[in-house]
C-alpha cells in the first residue's frame, strides 16, 4: 500500500516537473518568437517559419480532409439513425455543423498534426541534439530557441487553425452529401441551414481551441526533442512520447475548454 502511494507520488512529481519544464520553455520561446515574425523579425527565421507552415499545413491537407470527410459521414449517419426515430432528421444538420465547427474540426486536426508534425519536431530536434548540431549552433552565437524552436511555433500557430477550418469545411460537406443522398436535400439549401446554425461564438471558440492545440503540439514536440540524451534510440523514444503526450494533453485541454465554453455559453 505504502509502495503504491510512493509510486503514485513519484509519478505525480515527475508529471509536475514535466509541466514545469513545459512552462519555462514556453516563455523562452514566446520571447524568441518575435524574431520569427515578418518585418520586425529576422528574415531567415521568417523564411524557416514559412517552410515549416507548408510542411505542417499543406502536406497534411489531404490527410486532414479525408479524415474530416470520413468523420463527417460517421457523425451524420450515427446521428441520423437515432434522430430518424424521433422524426428529427433535420437536426443532423445542426449536429454536423456545430459539432465540426466547435469540436471535431480542431480536434481531428490536432490529432493529425501531432502525429505528423509533433513527432517530426521531436525527431528533428532530438537528432540535432545527438549529433551536437544544437551545441554547434550555440557556439556560433545562435540561440537554439530562436533559431530552431520559434519558427516551428509560429508555423504551428498559423497552420493548425487554417487546417481546422479546412477540416470543419470538409466534415460539413460530407454531412451535406449524406443529407443529399438520404433525403435529397439540395447542397445549397444545406449550406444555408448550416450557416444559420453556426454562430460567431462557435467560430471564436474553435479558433481559441486550435491555437491552444497548436501551442501544445509544438511545445511538447520541441521539448521532447530537447530532452533527448544519448543516442538514436533516445530519439525514437522521444518521438513516440511526443505523440503520446501531445495527443493526451490536447484531449485534456479540449475537455477543459469545452467545459469553460459550456458554462460561459449558459451564462
Amino acid at each position: 500500500m505504502a509502495n503504491l502511494l510512493e509510486i503514485a507520488g513519484r509519478e505525480t512529481l515527475s508529471q509536475l516537473d514535466y509541466v514545469g519544464s513545459l512552462n519555462i520553455q514556453l516563455w523562452a520561446t514566446l520571447r524568441g518568437m518575435r524574431a520569427a515574425l515578418p518585418l520586425v523579425g529576422n528574415r531567415h527565421r521568417w523564411r524557416a517559419a514559412v517552410h515549416q507552415m507548408l510542411e505542417i499545413g499543406v502536406d497534411a491537407l489531404p490527410m486532414v480532409a479525408l479524415m474530416a470527410v470520413c468523420s463527417g459521414f460517421i457523425l451524420a449517419m450515427q446521428g441520423a439513425s437515432e434522430l430518424r426515430r424521433f422524426g428529427a432528421l433535420h437536426y443532423v444538420i445542426d449536429l454536423v455543423a456545430v459539432g465540426f465547427t466547435r469540436e471535431l474540426g480542431p480536434l481531428l486536426t490536432a490529432i493529425a498534426v501531432s502525429g505528423r508534425s509533433g513527432s517530426a519536431f521531436a525527431a528533428e530536434i532530438g537528432t540535432m541534439k545527438v549529433t551536437e548540431e544544437i551545441d554547434a549552433l550555440k557556439v556560433m552565437a545562435f540561440e537554439p530557441v530562436e533559431f530552431v524552436l520559434a519558427p516551428k511555433y509560429l508555423a504551428a500557430l498559423v497552420a493548425v487553425p487554417c487546417l481546422s477550418i479546412v477540416a470543419a469545411f470538409f466534415g460539413i460537406l460530407a454531412g451535406g452529401l449524406f443529407m443529399f443522398f438520404s433525403t435529397h436535400l439540395g447542397l445549397l439549401l444545406y449550406l444555408r441551414y448550416v450557416l444559420t446554425s453556426i454562430e460567431l461564438r462557435d467560430v471564436v471558440a474553435a479558433m481559441i481551441k486550435s491555437l491552444a492545440f497548436a501551442t501544445i503540439i509544438a511545445h511538447v514536440g520541441c521539448l521532447e526533442g530537447l530532452r533527448v540524451r544519448g543516442g538514436p534510440d533516445a530519439v525514437g523514444r522521444s518521438t513516440t512520447s511526443a505523440v503520446v503526450r501531445s495527443t493526451f494533453l490536447v484531449i485534456v485541454a479540449d475537455a477543459i475548454f469545452t467545459t469553460i465554453f459550456y458554462f460561459v455559453g449558459k451564462a
Binding site: 537528432t127 554547434a136 552565437a141
Partner: peptide
C-alpha cells in the same frame, strides 16, 4: 557569452555539421 562566442571558431570532434 554570445559576444565571446563570436570570436571563437570551433570544429567539434563529431564535426556536427548541419545535416
Amino acid at each position: 557569452l554570445n559576444k565571446v562566442r563570436r570570436s571563437l571558431g570551433v570544429a567539434f570532434q563529431s564535426a556536427a555539421l548541419f545535416n
